[in-house]
């Protein structure tokens, strides 16, 4: 344990001297100092591989923990849906409670054609309808492409909640202001992964820089046929799905 503290101290010292600066950024950026963060060098996106999601709900739990999302069943920054597509074309969807998958009599039966989980979150649209309608400009797109809400200036009119086609926004009952996924902005600006990505046991979620030529996200975008949710609305989501079923909305 002492070793870790010593390491940390010496690392900081070295970094301050500027010796390790180059190496630190070249290696894992986890230790990069926030003041050295340059938003113009990033454009964040997420890839979701449907075929890897096991519906464990760790992401949902981690998100609520990391971002102080109300611990009830009506406020989520991310959630997981179970789709069951039946022989006769019927589609049954339900929200998976974290840890509940498999614990109750599963809906799928002999009539089931295919069934799978779909993680959902704010799509961080490049053309965000929520930003367009906010009367006071309290929600906006940052330079690195994340949609944030200014909780100190949001007047709570809920127009953005109406404008979001994905149901990704909610009115935070504690602050009476609009709230949503920030891609864990406080983490990613320090080189950490969003909490949901960090805890996903199967790498169903892949986070990174869209413009980076070599990264897990770049690989994801190269290796898969991609789709976004509700493309006809021209919101240009930065959350892209691989193996997305046509029934998913």
């Amino acid at each position: 344990m002492e070793r870790r503290r010593f390491l940390k101290k010496s690392l900081t010292l070295l970094a301050e001297a500027g010796v390790l600066g180059g190496i630190a950024t070249a290696a894992k950026t986890a230790r990069a100092e926030p003041k050295g963060y340059d938003p113009s060098k990033h454009r964040y996106g997420m890839g979701i591989q449907i075929d890897k999601c096991i519906g464990c709900g760790k992401c949902v739990e981690a998100c609520k923990e990391e971002n102080n999302v109300p611990r009830d069943v009506a406020h989520f920054r991310t959630w997981v849906e179970r789709y069951v597509i039946e022989q006769d074309g019927g589609v049954v969807v339900e929200r998976v409670d974290p840890g509940s998958s498999g614990s109750h009599e599963p809906i799928p039966n002999e009539n089931t054609v295919r069934t799978f989980f779909v993680p959902k979150l704010c799509n961080q649209c490049d053309n965000p309808p929520c930003v367009q309608v906010c009367p006071v400009g309290a929600t906006f797109k940052t330079e690195d492409g994340v949609i944030l809400v200014d909780a100190d200036r949001c007047i709570g009119c809920r127009y953005c909640i109406q404008a979001c086609p994905y149901g990704a926004r909610y009115l935070n009952p504690l602050t009476d202001t609009a709230d949503k996924c920030t891609f864990c902005y406080h983490r990613i600006t320090k080189g950490l992964l969003p909490a949901c990505v960090e805890v996903c046991p199967t790498q169903a979620r892949i986070f990174g820089d869209i413009d980076s030529p070599a990264s897990p996200l770049a690989r994801f975008r190269r290796m898969n046929k991609l789709h976004v949710l509700k493309p006809s609305l021209n919101t240009e989501p930065k959350v892209q799905y691989a193996d997305l079923d046509g029934e998913v909305r």
Binding site: Q132, V133, P135, V136, G137, R153, I155, G156, C157, R158
Partner: peptide, 28 residues
Amino acid sequence: PLLLHLGHPERSYEIFLTPNLTSAMAMF
């Protein structure tokens, strides 16, 4: 009714300070 429905009616003046020109509601 608009005012009373806001989560923060006391901040409604923000509409005049920083009106978002793309918002239909800001034009109110």
